[in-house]
Write a protein that binds this DNA or RNA. Structure first.
Length: 127
DNA sequence: AGCGTGACGAGTA
DNA sequence: ATACTCGCCACGC
């Protein structure tokens, strides 16, 4: 609705609002059902825009407003720095985990990606 | 304009 | 299974 001075494109530098891309990423994060996860790469593919690193950037900056623990690394490693918080959520939602095989202590479980990965409703067409 | 960094990911050793 | 490399790409200095 607002107009811009002719000749001055609003390219980068967004005002206070979240960048459009960030909003889309967060939107997808909200779609992930409890007990399931999507990888950064999956989200990027689903959006057909950006890449894993861009999704990761958005999550690091604005993820606090959404279930951030449901967007994970493809190898299932818990988010460094928030392992216990994430683990609490996973246990509470019944997200499939792979307990450390060896009896080594200090090893937190990792996500069982084969079972926890959510396809984003592949047949629920988003286009 | 170059260079390092990062909530990544796949491939190789 | 772990460690390392490389490709990726937006950002900040």
């Amino acid at each position: 609705m607002s107009e811009r001075s002719p000749g001055a494109e609003p390219r980068e530098t967004h005002p206070d609002d979240l960048p459009e891309y960030a909003e889309r990423v967060l939107e997808v994060a909200e779609l992930i059902p409890p007990g399931r996860v999507m990888t950064y790469g999956d989200v990027a593919e689903w959006l057909e825009e950006g890449g894993p690193r861009q999704v990761g950037r958005v999550m690091s900056l604005y993820g606090g407003a959404v279930p951030w623990w449901r967007v994970v690394r493809s190898d299932g490693v818990l988010l460094p720095g928030h392992e216990l918080r994430a683990l609490g959520h996973y246990r509470a939602e019944g997200t499939p985990l792979r307990e450390a095989s060896t009896s080594a202590e200090g090893h937190l479980p990792r996500l069982d990606m084969r079972r926890a990965r959510w396809d984003g409703g592949a047949d629920a067409g988003h286009t």
